[in-house]
Simulated assay, not measured.
Amino acid sequence: MDPDLSKLDGFLNEVDVDGYLIEADGDAADQRYLSGFTAPDPFVTLYTGETHLLVSALEYGRAKRTARAETVERHADYDHRSNVAEYGSHEGKYRTLAAFFDAHGAGSVAVPADFPIGTADGLRRCDVAVQADIDGVLGEIRARKHAEEVEHIRAAQRANESAMARAEKLLAAAETVDGTLSLDDEPLTAERVKREIEIELLRNDCALDETIVACGADAADPHDRGSGPLRPDEAIIVDIFPCSKETGYYADMTRTFCVGEPSDTIERWYDLTLEAQTAALDAIEAGVSASDVHDAVCDVYEAAGLPTLRADETTETGFIHTTGHGVGLDIHEYPRISEEPIELEAGNVVTVEPGLYDPAVGGVRIEDLVVVTEDGHENLTEYPKALAVESR
């Protein structure tokens, strides 16, 4: 994939700098997107209308073969060893970088807002002007996905659904013993379900650092990862957000399950949340404000007499988060589906995940992953929505 960087060119002209600089490892989404390269240690990407990489000798051969860059160079090409010997490791590094910039006509650069301050200060001492890109132009560029990126996300979502099916199968096979769920004569714990989710994802070349399997009061905290034995008759939130080991693209999906008989409140909350999600999905299309999508969710909940942050920014129960977020090389990226009036564009990939929470009741959340289109959306999520678990 060759990204369209015309917006980055326009940004450089607007702020009157020669280039855009990233110093980060390949896990940083902007770095991977701009360079087309990954490495476990930080390396330098300079964009001046063309993309130039400066890497260690260790990464040089692989970067020459695989990076999406016009030039790939080594520290040794800029007398790095001599610079370190004369100026020390830190100042020598900055001298090497300054020489690299000079070779590519970059006396001034813009950098991401989270750029290392030590490097920025060191470059300024070498007469390189550095200014922060506080608006995140690359994040905005990455938000509009190419068809190839959408396919990468779709593939990660299929793996995600396989893992969700594994989790639901465990729940469906469980029995109630002394007030908790049991499987194969052992307690069915959140940790056990999460382990099986991770194993299933690995079978599909995906991985994740953590996932959410939260039951009862744990599920009332949207980001509580969940722990301990799972219980019947209570809502169990399963939120899985894996990353493809090959492409680096994420997927994201949440389902809420109940083994046994849910309370009337949980059933009502589930139906309302499904209604709220449908209202949000119906509102999505290119040109619509993300705030209108968020409002569609709040309208449903508030009409039912339930609290939202829109109505009361201090509420600790009810709908206590935004409606969604962008997904791509980061699990949370631009645009957010919130009160902020951001215009959605065709190619945005966003979650739609309304939910309700109260420690006295538990929590319910339903999350799909969709691509914004000119006249609506394409839902990348095929997994069914049902509160009662089903054998799969």
Rank of each mutant, 00 (worst) to 15 (best):
D114K: 10
S35L: 10
A386K: 12
A386H: 14
A76N: 05
Q157Y: 09
A67L: 14
G318N: 03
A386C: 09
G260S: 06
S89D: 14
Y94R: 05
I366A: 06
T180F: 02
A214S: 14
H377S: 01
L309Q: 11
V55L: 09
R336K: 10
V293G: 03
E302H: 03
T314F: 04
G26V: 05
P116H: 06
I117F: 04
C206F: 01
D233M: 13
A28N: 12
T96M: 09
V15Q: 12
I199D: 15
A165G: 15
R95S: 09
G10Y: 09
A251I: 01
E149R: 09
I153K: 06
D233Y: 02
D30L: 04
I141F: 02
R144T: 15
E23N: 12
F241D: 00
V44P: 13
I266G: 02
E70L: 10
D2T: 14
T278I: 01
Y383I: 08
K385M: 07
I237V: 15
G19M: 11
E191G: 15
D299M: 03
D185P: 11
D224K: 12
E50G: 14
V372Y: 01
D16V: 10
F241I: 05
E340D: 07
D292H: 02
C298D: 07
A304V: 06
G363T: 13
I197S: 15
A156V: 02
E70W: 06
Y383T: 13
R62A: 13
L53P: 15
A311Q: 13
D133T: 07
A172D: 12
G179N: 03
Y383P: 07
A76C: 05
P112I: 07
I141L: 13
V300I: 14
G61N: 13
Y60N: 04
V297P: 00
V300E: 05
L34A: 11
D41Y: 09
E149M: 06
A172T: 09
D2G: 10
V364T: 07
N13E: 08
T381V: 04
L8S: 04
V364Q: 01
